[in-house]
Design a protein around this nucleic acid. Structure first.
Lengths: 216, 216
DNA sequence: GTCTATAATCGGATAGAC
DNA sequence: GTCTATCCGATTATAGAC
């Protein structure tokens, strides 16, 4: 999963974050939080939630576990914060629900190409989306919402494509949306397993050509 | 994942009694091993390798952890044994490299439909293939080989389809193979996240129709 | 073959000083 | 805001009795 979903999600608010103005000692604190989130991204990316230790995150940031937990109540809260932060960045790059149909697909391909240069992010969402499949996983609800939102937004985008006669016969917007997400998620697994086995962006573009008549 | 190829499961045996195959003490031992593998399948399916505890497996079988480790050297060995056993069963159901092109695709769709009734198996391969993306995961090499084999076998099958003029223009056997695996893996994530969100077999059939002219 | 006991870590989380 | 100290629980794995 990932990225499919990774890629696109509505902006989420991070707890405790106000508008971006430094004030008092908040500035330093925000900086520390950001550093923690960067470290946690990698740690959770490699080991998932269960395999990623707070200790490992703390080490990377250069502080103790207790110090880290001053900024985030617990491990789950840290994970959610990481995911929400990624979503903000992804959304600012590809606001799926605000783009014209063709533009959305093009940006999606570009995003996948970009992600190829950021393995940590791909890793994070791929590992976590599979892990969060369990109903009791701390990010289960999060991913359910994410998939639903992504699926709907993509369906809207494909609806615009369809209106322009750009969808091949037998392909509906809903089908295209589900298929696109599945394709993106699946490509990531193969790519992470062996990065020379395929080119994610290229394969996604091919998929779009299979279900549409657009020139991407 | 592979599940494509992976996924097949047989009815679980009750721990104590099974077929009466009398022979030294091997019979009993084999029975116990089988019971352990069945239990481990579910446990690793839900929590992955890192999240699945030996204790949970032992409880299901009704024995102690130490007793369990008498049959399998360690946790990693147990995991590999589970995966290999699943592959044997899967292969006996869908010998991908021995089937005629069209038959292979039909059996694949049927397998996915069948898997829908065995969530434990789908869970296992979905969670583990993502987890095993890390180079240091005990099943990393295993999955790399599995993906390579599946990709090659599928490419051969699609090659036969292509020879019969069954592939749409612009679609090569290699592309179709990678795409099929990606689609199957991705569909599983969405399905596990919300089982009412889609019909895996139906979506796979649709994909085949998008890349081929076959009547499935 | 299976159990009890135990070793040896490791992980998350809290309390309280500074 | 950050640290030290500490608690507590969970795990894997081994040793040795039955």
């Amino acid at each position: 999963m990932t990225d499919a979903a990774t890629t696109v999600q509505e902006p989420a608010r991070a707890p405790g974050r106000g508008r971006g103005r430094p004030r008092g000692s908040y500035a330093k604190s925000e900086e520390t939080r950001a550093a923690i989130l960067d470290a946690a991204l990698e740690v959770f990316g490699q080991g998932g939630f269960r395999g990623g230790a707070l200790r490992a995150v703390a080490e990377r940031v250069g502080m103790s576990e207790a110090g880290l937990l001053h900024h985030f109540k617990n491990k789950s809260a840290l994970l959610i914060a990481v995911l929400e932060r990624r979503d903000e960045l992804s959304y600012s790059r590809v606001p799926l629900d605000q783009l014209d149909g063709v533009a959305a697909l093009r940006r999606l391909v570009a995003l996948v190409a970009y992600n190829t240069t950021k393995p940590g992010v791909v890793d994070l969402f791929c590992t976590l989306s599979a892990e969060a499949t369990s109903p009791d996983h701390p990010a289960h609800a999060y991913f359910q919402n994410r998939y639903e939102w992504t699926r709907n937004s993509l369906a809207v985008a494909f609806g615009k494509v369809e209106a322009g006669g750009g969808l091949r016969p037998g392909v509906s917007p809903a089908i295209a949306a589900r298929g696109t997400i599945a394709m993106m998620d699946g490509l990531q697994v193969q790519w992470l397993m062996d990065r020379s086995s395929l080119n994610m962006a290229e394969e996604l573009r091919r998929y779009f050509r299979q279900i549409s008549t657009l020139d991407l």
